[in-house]
């Protein structure tokens, strides 16, 4: 399995290492040409405003949009989840494939960033690392919440797309990457 990682900026190496541990090959994506032959795609954490801009400038936005629509499995973490939300701060999202409404930096500034134990359905306990994280304020019927933090969904799946408002790539725990490959990508 070949997994593309959007590589302009952010937690690229961390995802690469985690995917390597669970046995996937990876390729860094900065141009449309590099999308060829990928079986799945990862949007890492980083700064969502910046990532969104580079996607447009490099001509990747439309290409990726079509691939996701055709069923390409995608895993977005933190900024990556923002890119995949239907609504971001009340406006239409970049790739609106997950029926959620998300608010950026909603826990507050960096001093409010935190770690917390999460209970993920079917997986059990998972260490959540939340860094200037967004909050999913509402979730539509088509999307399925797989984990919550104090009543708010933090891990959501809708068909071929999985999003986490936290950073499994920083957790030192490979199980969510494994879950993505086995349950989202290979379905």
């Amino acid at each position: 399995m070949l997994v593309g990682i959007l590589a302009f900026q952010g937690g690229v190496i961390e995802h690469k290492q985690m995917l390597g541990v669970v046995g996937a090959k990876t390729v860094e994506i900065r141009t449309p040409r590099e999308l060829r032959g990928i079986d799945a795609l990862v949007f890492p954490g980083g700064e969502s405003t910046h990532l969104s801009k580079e996607l447009d400038e490099s001509g990747l936005t439309l290409k990726i949009f079509r691939l996701i629509k055709k069923g390409l499995p995608v895993f977005g973490t933190c900024a990556g989840a923002i890119l995949l939300s239907k609504k971001v701060d009340g406006k239409k999202g970049k790739f609106p494939f997950v029926d959620i409404s998300i608010k950026r930096n909603a826990y507050g500034r960096q001093v409010e960033s935190f770690e917390a134990k999460l209970k993920v359905s079917k997986l059990g306990w998972f260490p959540g690392v939340f860094i200037r994280a967004p909050i999913i304020e509402s979730i539509g019927k088509k999307a399925e919440a797989l984990a919550f933090f104090n009543g708010k969904p933090v891990l959501v799946r809708q068909k071929n797309v999985l999003v986490a408002t936290f950073h499994p790539e920083l957790s030192g725990n490979k199980r969510l990457h494994e879950f993505f490959l086995q349950n989202v990508a290979l379905q």
């Binding site: 590589a7 952010g10 954490g45 980083g46 700064e47 933190c78 690392v129």
Partner: peptide, 16 residues
């Protein structure tokens, strides 16, 4: 304020 959370923000700035 754990070190993981502090170093984690720096990790998210990489490539920027």
């Amino acid at each position: 304020g754990s070190f993981r959370v502090k170093a984690g923000l720096a990790q998210m700035l990489k490539g920027g």
